[in-house]
């Protein structure tokens, strides 16, 4: 599965459009990791466990989007966009969407 966030795939020709595909996941943070994070809130710096958590969740959302595209018979997704929203205290939704296409 080829993904880009531009309109089309450079050097390849799009032969069929399948419309919008999307994937999302809602994740809550781990209370134990949160204890470590609250220490970091005093001294500042990167919250590595959260970076990893967000990265992993985002990969899952992308995977779900790819599955959806595969079912449609697409082999690429163009114009991919990410969006993140805080839906509740301590939980975030990671949403990714794009246009499924078939390329040569």
């Amino acid at each position: 599965m080829l993904l880009t966030n531009i309109e089309g795939i450079p050097g390849r020709k799009i032969i069929e459009h399948f419309g919008l595909v999307s994937g999302s996941t809602v994740r809550a943070k781990n209370a134990f990791k949160d204890i470590g994070a609250s220490f970091k809130n005093i001294v500042g710096g990167e919250l590595k466990s959260y970076t990893a958590l967000m990265d992993e969740s985002r990969s899952q959302a992308v995977e779900r989007m790819e599955q959806q595209a595969q079912q449609l018979g697409a082999n690429a997704i163009i114009n991919v966009r990410f969006s993140t929203s805080n839906i509740a205290q301590g939980a975030a939704e990671l949403y990714v969407y794009g246009t499924a296409v078939r390329i040569e």
Binding site: T4, I6, P10, K40, I42, T51, R58
Partner: peptide, 20 residues
């Protein structure tokens, strides 16, 4: 455009906290 060999999506993230 003609010279492109490959193109794919990449992303990077960082969670950073401020100090007290």
């Amino acid at each position: 455009e003609k010279m492109v060999n490959e193109a794919h999506l990449v992303y990077g993230n960082a969670v950073i906290s401020t100090d007290y």
